[in-house]
Amino acid sequence: MLSLYIQHKRHGDEFELKNIEVTIMPSQITLLLGHNGAGKTTIIKSLFGLMDYVGTLSVNNKKIDLNVSEDVDYLKKNVSYISDEIALFDYLTPKEYFSLIENSFKHQVDHQLLEKLIKIFELERYLHIPISNLSHGNKKKTQIVSQLFKGSEFVIFDEPTNGLDPDMVIILRKTLHFLKTKGIGILLSTHHLSFGEELYDKVILLRNGKVKLNCTRDQVFEQFGRMSLEEIYEEANKDYYLKAEEILNAPDVRDNSEDRDSETG
């Protein structure tokens, strides 16, 4: 189990996170949902020590101190991170990049999974081309494959569909479902609600640093019935949308001076 508890985190003047609990279980997919600026990225960066916060982090019941190198190594070994930005060594080919990952995590990499991922993400013809010469989509696929075959117990995925065409979005969904059946715990942060519709076991929904929803799929069904994820998202944020509807439906108020001008013209 991977567990993050943020007791308090101030994010400038925009918002603050308080009493946020994120738990990722083996063989489960947790969706992290929210608008831009809701706090999703802050949570993910906190998981990897990229932001300071008051709270605790543990992996498999081992408390992680991000100031201790051994703990950081343990975190990196057990948790893979696929960011929404593509950060690769562009001067390497995908084949060379995968070899670099293999050498760094040689006691845990899944070579059979690597071969499967290369085939289903259609990277075979690009293995010996410098990453700098690849299309954005193929760079994204290289990034995804490099993290998924590492053999980590947990995967953190930020905006997984960015840069992928419809075929690869479907392939990725099937891949994540496959990884879940193999015991991998996954956190997905996404704006595309339909992508996680069939996958999720738990959903965490944020608005302006506050948790609007944090429950399992069964609890979602108990509370919302068979509503779609988009409908659930709208219902959980209904105050926000009601305000928007009030603005849209408010009667137009014309400038009185314009009325007088038209009457005397």
Rank of each mutant, 00 (worst) to 15 (best):
D218L: 11
D13C: 04
I29Q: 00
K77H: 06
M25F: 04
I29H: 02
F98Y: 06
K202L: 05
L75H: 05
D90T: 12
V72A: 04
L123N: 12
K62F: 00
L50I: 10
N138C: 11
I29G: 03
I24H: 00
K210R: 10
L229I: 02
L4D: 00
L206Q: 04
S152R: 07
L32D: 03
I6M: 05
K76F: 13
P160C: 04
E222M: 04
D261Y: 09
E258Y: 11
T56E: 15
I29V: 13
Y126K: 04
D252T: 13
L134N: 00
L176P: 01
Q28L: 14
N208V: 11
Y81Q: 12
I20T: 10
L148G: 00
Q7D: 03
T30R: 05
L164K: 13
D110K: 05
K76D: 07
E222P: 08
P130C: 02
Q28C: 11
S257M: 15
A250Q: 13
L32M: 03
A236C: 09
I29F: 01
T30W: 09
D259R: 11
L242D: 12
N208M: 10
R173L: 07
H8P: 12
D158G: 11
S146Q: 03
L50V: 14
E21H: 01
T190H: 06
E14K: 15
K119G: 14
G34P: 02
S27N: 07
Q219D: 14
G163F: 02
L113Y: 10
F149M: 12
H191G: 07
L127I: 03
S46E: 15
H191V: 10
E246V: 02
M1R: 01
V54P: 09
L50P: 09
I156Q: 00
H8R: 07
Q108S: 08
L50C: 15
I144M: 15
D84K: 06
L193R: 00
T175F: 06
E231Q: 10
Y233H: 10
T23I: 06
I131P: 01
D261E: 15
P26G: 14
E21I: 09
E124H: 12
D165C: 08
E235P: 00
K77E: 15
L57T: 00
I120F: 11
L206I: 06
E230Q: 10
L164F: 11
S257D: 15
I24A: 05
D52E: 09
S104F: 05
H136R: 08
E197Q: 06
K9P: 03
P166A: 10
V169H: 12
L248Y: 00
M51R: 13
K212T: 04
Q219V: 15
Y74H: 15
K180E: 04
S83E: 15
T175G: 03
Y5C: 04
F221E: 12
E234V: 09
Q147K: 13
I171F: 11
L127F: 02
Q147G: 05
T175V: 09
G37W: 01
